[in-house]
């Protein structure tokens, strides 16, 4: 359900992009510290976003060093060294990856996915033990399990309301962004609606496949699926834009602005026109043609 959160680089200043990239590198390090070297392969922009939101909320100062990346030692890169909040996000990312694989291994229609899940499970189980030992983001395991159970229950009930179906996931994203933080209404709303947006975008993207396989999808069988998905995505974009305008001043704020005004709307347009999120990178030139 991930890979939808992308910033739109051409509209970023170099400074903001460098900051974002150093957060990405910092996240990679945080993953290693929380889950061991193999955990680096689960690195995703979505959780960089959650880590950045936690940093902004906690008022953690952004610091970066210019050092060598262990995976590419010949090149010096900027790496964010203020990692307390990134580690919390890394923890959630690793646990979620484990439980999703477990889910796939138990009841996934596609044989290829199931085989892959079975092969990877022992590795992620080891990572999960390390995460538990590390001890950041208390209670996350329980929360993630509960959210996945609620998602399952909605699937079993054949829920057709996008909001009811999306709320367990959206609430989980909100929890990851807010656990152990001082209350902040706008940041909560931002995280909730980013989660809701991701769920609906994913539901729309999988619609065709799910209809063919007979799998659950809240949009299935609705002749107006596209309009409904588009309306709900726009509604979440509206809430995201409003919430971003209320975020506290921070050097990280332009990143959220770019996401709300450029990154998410572009991804949404791309998905509604039938694209796959992983292609947005490959189709760089097409996406950038408006420059």
């Amino acid at each position: 359900m991930f890979g939808y959160i992308r910033l739109y680089k051409p509209e970023m200043t170099y400074k903001d992009y460098a900051r974002y990239h150093s957060l990405y590198c910092g996240m990679c390090q945080a993953l290693k510290r929380v889950g061991g070297p193999l955990a680096r392969w689960t690195l995703q922009y979505d959780f960089v976003f959650l880590g950045a939101l936690r940093m902004l909320r906690a008022g953690e100062e952004f610091k970066a060093c210019n050092c060598r990346c262990p995976l590419n030692p010949f090149k010096k890169v900027n790496i964010c060294v203020s990692q307390t909040q990134l580690e919390a996000s890394a923890c959630a990312s690793l646990l979620l990856a484990h439980y999703q694989l477990k889910d796939d291994a138990e009841d996934c229609g596609s044989l290829k996915k199931r085989l892959r899940a079975c092969l990877l499970l022992p590795i992620t189980a080891g990572i999960k033990r390390r995460v538990a030992k590390h001890g950041t983001l208390k209670g996350s395991e329980e929360k993630i399990r509960q959210a996945l159970e609620r998602l399952h229950a909605a699937e079993q009930a054949g829920e057709t309301s996008l909001d009811v179906a999306a709320s367990p996931f959206a609430e989980l994203v909100q929890w990851v962004a807010s656990e152990g933080m001082p209350p902040h209404e706008a940041a909560d709303r931002l995280a909730y609606h980013v989660g809701r947006w991701i769920y609906i975008a994913d539901a729309w993207e999988d619609l065709q496949e799910d209809t063919q396989n007979g799998a659950y999808n809240p949009l299935k069988g609705d002749p107006q699926a596209r309009q409904r998905a588009e309306f709900s995505l726009n509604a979440s974009l509206m809430e995201i834009n409003r919430a971003v305008a209320e975020l506290p001043e921070s050097p990280l704020q332009p990143i959220f602005e770019n996401l709300a005004l450029q990154g998410l709307p572009r991804m949404q347009k791309f998905l509604l026109e039938g694209g796959h999120p992983s292609h947005i990178i490959k189709r760089k030139d097409r996406i950038h043609e408006s420059l």
């Binding site: 739109y8 509209e11 588009e230 309306f231 726009n234 509604a235 974009l237 509206m238 834009n241 005004l261 450029q262 709307p265 572009r266 949404q268 347009k269 043609e289 408006s290």
Partner: peptide
């Protein structure tokens, strides 16, 4: 409700994310 949410649509005329 529909008009308000449409203001944030990437398909809206003049949207910076529309690109056309």
């Amino acid at each position: 409700l529909h008009e308000r949410t449409h203001q944030y649509s990437p398909y809206r005329k003049g949207s910076s994310a529309g690109g056309d």
